Structure formats: structure tokens, C-alpha cells
Amino acid sequence: MENKKILFAEDDQMLASLLVYRLRKEGYQVNQIHDGKAVKEALEQGIPDAIVCDVMMPYFSGIELIDYVRNELKSDVPIILISAASNDENILSAFKMGANDFIPKPISPNELSIRLAKELSRVSV
């Protein structure tokens, strides 16, 4: 997964640091962002190879992000949502809006790595 660009949006600094460290160790180029407004700004600069985003973010939720990427940017970039609020309603709306995957918190770095690699392999086929 060398040189794959990942946009990682999570407002929990401790969790973000742990997961971003792991992804960088695996060779990903990770753009770590802490709020929804910065996510939108980053996407205006260019679309990454994949997006990992928390559902509940300041300014712009993960669900709104999916809508923005799919309907305004017209991109099918893989989007993986992560959330502590992993109730059926959030999960269903994420998939309806076009999320590729949904991982409930607490999240294992190994699980994120495997799911991300799976989504990226679908795209590069």
C-alpha cells in the first residue's frame, strides 16, 4: 500500500495518534485532520485514495462528508466511517449515503488496517 494517500479525520487526538501512527508505519501517506471544516478544505485540494472519518466531528459530520463527497465532488473514493455511536440508525444512514464500511469504536488498529487494505484493493483492480 505504498504511497496511498489517506485522509484521516478524527477529533479524538489520542485515538487519531494511535491509528495514524499505525497507518504511516504501513507505508500510507496520512493527512490527519481534526474537524469537518478542515476535511472539506483538504478535499478541495484533491481527493485522497481513501477517507477514514469519525461520524461525530465538529462543523461537518461523517454522514455529511459522505453526502458531500458522493454528490458534490462526484467521487467514489472509499470512505470508512468510525464511531462510538454505532447504533443501527447511524450505520444504516452511513451505508445509504454511500459509505464503504463502518467500524464501531473502540477500534483495533489491526482491524482498520485490514478493512482499509480491502477497500483500496477493490479500487486498484
Rank of each mutant, 00 (worst) to 15 (best):
L19M: 14
L19G: 09
V20G: 12
E26W: 02
E26Y: 13
G27R: 10
Q29G: 00
V30S: 03
N31I: 14
N31D: 15
Q32F: 11
Q32I: 03
G36A: 13
G36R: 10
G36I: 14
K37P: 00
E44C: 01
E44K: 14
I47G: 08
I47D: 10
I47T: 13
I47Y: 09
P48S: 05
D49L: 02
A50Y: 08
A50Q: 09
A50I: 12
I51K: 00
C53T: 15
D54F: 14
V55Q: 06
V55H: 06
M56R: 10
M57H: 11
P58L: 06
P58D: 13
P58R: 07
Y59C: 11
G62S: 05
G62I: 12
L65V: 00
Y68H: 08
N71E: 01
E72H: 09
E72P: 04
K74G: 03
D76R: 11
D76E: 12
V77P: 07
P78E: 06
P78H: 02
I82P: 08
I82C: 11
S83G: 13
N90H: 13
L92F: 11
S93R: 07
S93K: 10
A94Y: 07
K96F: 04
M97A: 11
G98I: 00
A99T: 06
A99P: 10
N100L: 10
N100M: 14
N100P: 03
P104N: 13
